[in-house]
Design a protein around this nucleic acid. Structure first.
Lengths: 339, 339
DNA sequence: TTGACTTGCGCAATCGATTGCATTAATCGT
DNA sequence: ACGATTAATGCAATCGATTGCGCAAGTCAA
């Protein structure tokens, strides 16, 4: 491994000069011909700056960490992809950490990442209350939330506009002629779960309806199985309803299973609309109508925001919302002529 | 941030003593009571070792990098998940890098990761020939391939047993009574593409058949669209066939589309079997029979292997294959009574 | 010509932990 | 009881780059 000293010796200058010449930002203070010779020598010797040594002295590591509950989740993986994209374009590396609940708490992970001197942190773990945020705040490490909001907006976050999304879903069903619309909500301890529930209620209100508590059922997790179970409860309670809006595609697929089990058909007997537009939901039977969210774009926005924060471009804590899109497929249709 | 010096001063010993006391491996050389006092003080002061400083001196970073072509790909994300799992359990952090073809070559990424002093590298980029491997070899950084094999087995790799998988698929179709079986192959520049094609041919041979070149068509990418196009070509050429084994689930779904377009039905007119068992293929119409591969497990094995390599536990370059599993759903059934 | 700046670069400290070697104190064999 | 080990800890160099400060030469105005 050739170091900065080797280059310095080769050119006949002091290492510090090499350091400056190699940094485009400080290159200006060095004479033009010297810079050229240094660049040339560095190239020739195959010099690669040692990021670790640089971090130690400068305090910046050019690394950011992201904490996700499940890397393989189709919601989070595109977020990671988008994030990594903008990060690497600016020379940052991304460390992904997936807290194993049984092994170590999420805030221990924050510690570990901070010990690695990450310049910033992205929190994608969706639990509404956990103290990772406090940890970051107390350590003064730049942090942004993604796919998750915080009640007191102390830190910036990037989320989909759940109210707008729910508005789209409700408007679509209303337009088809549905009047009795249910909501299969996600876990209320999770950010998206509660946000979307609120979005649903608000959207219904705007349309002049007042959903009863009975019209909403909460699934215990964002899984097909939990969706199936909750749908069974909900349908037993409200057999007259003609449509359900689910807080998430997985829950919607759970509804499919519940319908099959109870001998109903989608969309003839019940319209179902999901949320997220995850891969392949256009191929299930029936193809799922849903609200499309560009998670990759959310990841990109998160990266931009975090980098701005790290590099001090902005001091405020913006709350970025990305616009959702209605995708109509075949799981929604007008209700049967009723009564 | 409290450093090792602070702890030393607090306890009244030399920093080096603290360093040793904190490392379980070298703790033995330090007196028991001193160790206790150091541990206690470290705890009380909230000491966190600075990983960066340690890396600089020791040369190890406790980080490994993984280079993947697409983080959001349902094949790779569970691999990353499994890998991260075993890595973090042993105190390693995982950097994921996703080479943007247009921006920077994959070997540039290798350089960047090496500059960060990663202790090891996982290559998941599937192109059969690229020189990342050479880079790693020349830099002597431990590397293992995952979901990809190399002709000359210079470096260890973890792959699914494609021959066994194809054997399962072929045996299943044979057992159902199919005799004219086609293969929709993946791109042959990709490791899985060529391995599975070979697997198919070999499995057919073992069963006493000799697939003609005409029975195999290569898709240009592992995507639904490429699968559809290739399936169209293949079906036009071999309208008499009763079954297709696809190199991958996405291709199988592409076949579904081609069938729909040409007015055939699956499984009545043609049986289709995929490969990977990616999420949700049990919900498409019809539910896809496929070969299940545990990508997460592959990721875990990769992690183990890499750590062993890094820590010098083993010097050989093992070639780990994981066993695939046949999952029968509804896209395969006995052929119509023919002739 | 001189004093005030500016420009270009060298000097040396520094970041925080690790580690080979040196040193002191305690233990042992005979 | 004394030299030889052994055990426990201190010392100081080191990893490779960054950076505040300082110095010398050059520039410019008066």
């Amino acid at each position: 491994m050739t170091t900065i000293k080797d280059v310095a010796r080769e050119v006949g200058v002091h290492p510090s000069t090499v350091s400056r010449a190699l940094d485009p930002a400080r290159r200006g203070r060095i004479g033009e011909p010297v810079v050229r010779r240094i660049l040339e020598a560095a190239e020739r010797l195959g010099y690669r700056p040692d990021t670790v040594a640089a971090s130690l002295r400068s305090g910046r590591s050019n690394m950011v960490g992201i904490i996700v509950p499940d890397i393989a989740n189709p919601v989070f993986s595109p977020i990671i992809g988008g994030l990594e994209d903008v990060l690497s374009a600016r020379g940052y590396a991304l460390i992904v950490a997936d807290p194993q609940p049984q092994r170590t708490g999420a805030d221990d992970i924050v510690q570990r990442l901070v010990a690695r001197r990450v310049d910033g942190l992205v929190l994608a773990n969706v639990a509404l209350k956990d103290n990772s945020i406090e940890r970051c705040l107390s350590w003064k490490v730049p942090v942004v939330l993604v796919n998750r909001a915080e009640a007191e907006a102390r830190v910036p976050s990037v989320v989909s506009d759940d109210v707008a999304g729910m508005r789209l879903a409700v408007a679509h069903l209303l337009e088809l002629g549905h009047r009795h619309i249910l909501h299969l909500a996600g876990p209320q301890m999770l950010s998206t779960g509660s946000l979307r529930r609120r979005g649903f209620v608000e959207a219904m209100h705007e349309a002049g309806f007042t959903p009863a508590d009975n019209d909403i059922e909460e699934a215990e997790a964002f899984t097909r199985e939990a969706g199936r179970a909750a749908a069974l409860r909900l349908l037993a309670r409200q057999p007259e309803a003609t449509a359900i809006v689910a807080a998430n595609d997985l829950l919607a697929l759970g509804i499919y299973e519940a319908l099959r089990e109870t001998g109903r058909r989608c969309p003839e007997d019940l319209s179902v609309i999901g949320h997220n537009d995850m891969p392949l939901v256009d191929l299930v039977d029936p193809p799922l109508s849903t609200i499309r969210i560009s998670h990759r774009e959310m990841g990109e926005q998160t990266g931009q925001l975090l980098l701005d924060l790290i590099e001090g471009v902005r001091g405020d804590a913006p709350y970025v919302v990305t616009a959702p899109l209605l995708v109509v497929r075949r799981s929604t249709q007008p209700p049967r002529i009723s009564r």
